[in-house]
């Protein structure tokens, strides 16, 4: 009985941020798939990763659905939370990334995932922006890089959308992503430079800054034929932000593990894929080495994160009230 109550209590505090795992794992899958194609490798790695990412997504979705059914108030509380709110689009982003991963394997599955992901993401973006506009109690310290998550998701839509034939819809989402990336980037720098430092456990979310230009670059390459000036601006912005954040590595590594560490994974996957796409477009070997190097680095980080998450779950350090 006590165990059942404890289990229900943990379900109540099952955080929406868990879905960031799916983003990282699916990003890693897509990255390895592209790398295998470029390197001409016949490893079953990408297929295995896809199965694992899809399984994790189904598992997390089931748990969160259970939370929605059994602890509706807790879900609503997360929806009203100024920071946790921004993690809800990780669900739709997970769907969009899975759609991209399934695109060449099962186009019909990809279409279903993409349709569900794009629709859900549009609804969540509208809801979150409404909250941003109409909530009165937002303060500067509530602003953190997690606010980029809804924005990044919009830029992800063209990656599978163009392949599925929805070019205009893809442009629509891409435009939203690029517009609000610039807006939020200004706000986040204002907050970082002139206000209180970002809360320690949210520090890894700074890596999300890499995601919009990286994802934007990959999406833009789907939408246009050639590598133009705007594409280069996007890629090199991503490269600079990656360099900037890697110079902060010792600070990040001193932090204690929390679920927000999964925020390292997807932006690095996005930058790795962007570098491989840059190689495809230019033929410059530097991008291939950089892309594959970032991918193996990300693989190491994901292994670490999986191990740390497993240990945290086993030791009961996740699904706690203060997360």
């Amino acid at each position: 009985m006590t165990a059942q109550i404890a289990s229900r209590s943990r379900l109540e505090h099952f955080p929406i941020a868990f879905f960031a795992m799916v983003m990282g794992l699916t990003g890693l899958t897509i990255g390895w798939e592209k790398a295998q194609v470029i390197l001409g490798l016949e490893w079953p790695l990408a297929d295995g990763l896809l199965v694992f990412a899809a399984t994790v997504f189904v598992l997390l979705a089931t748990l969160y659905l259970g939370k929605l059914l059994l602890r509706r108030a807790a879900v609503l509380q997360e929806l009203r939370h100024p920071i946790k709110l921004n993690f809800f689009p990780t669900i739709s982003i997970g769907l969009l990334l899975l759609a991209a991963a399934f695109l060449d394997r099962q186009p019909s599955v990809s279409f279903a995932l993409w349709g569900a992901g794009a629709s859900l993401h549009l609804a969540l973006t509208l809801y979150i922006m409404n909250v941003w506009i109409h909530r009165e109690h937002f303060q500067v310290h509530h602003m953190n890089p997690a606010w980029f998550i809804p924005v990044v998701g919009n830029a992800l839509v063209p990656i599978a959308g163009v392949g599925l034939g929805f070019v205009e819809v893809s442009w629509f989402f891409f435009s939203i992503g690029m517009l609000f990336w610039i807006v939020l980037l200004s706000i986040i720098f204002n907050r970082v430079l002139f206000h209180h430092p970002i809360e320690e456990r949210l520090m890894p979310t700074l890596f999300i800054l890499i995601a919009p230009p990286s994802v934007g670059f990959v999406a833009y390459m789907q939408l246009v034929e050639g590598l133009d000036s705007f594409a280069r601006v996007l890629y090199f912005s991503a490269l600079f932000l990656t360099l900037l954040l890697f110079t902060q590595a010792p600070r990040f590594l001193r932090l204690s593990f929390s679920l927000t560490w999964w925020a390292y994974s997807f932006p690095l996957a996005a930058f790795s894929i962007a570098s491989l796409v840059m190689f495809e477009r230019t033929g410059v070997d530097f991008y291939r080495y950089l892309g594959v190097g970032m991918l193996t680095l990300l693989s190491g980080i994901v292994l670490w994160l999986l191990a740390a998450t497993g240990v945290a779950v086993l030791k009961g350090r996740v699904c706690l009230p203060d997360q």
């Binding site: 194609v37 034939g165 590598l227 230019t282």
Partner: peptide, 26 residues
């Protein structure tokens, strides 16, 4: 090693996401 840039898609419509020749042969 180097799939030609901006290669037109000739394999199938779903291969709009850049799939280099190596992938097609796979």
């Amino acid at each position: 090693r180097f799939p030609e840039p901006a290669r037109p898609e000739i394999v199938e419509p779903m291969a709009k996401v850049t799939v280099p020749p190596a992938a097609a042969s796979r």
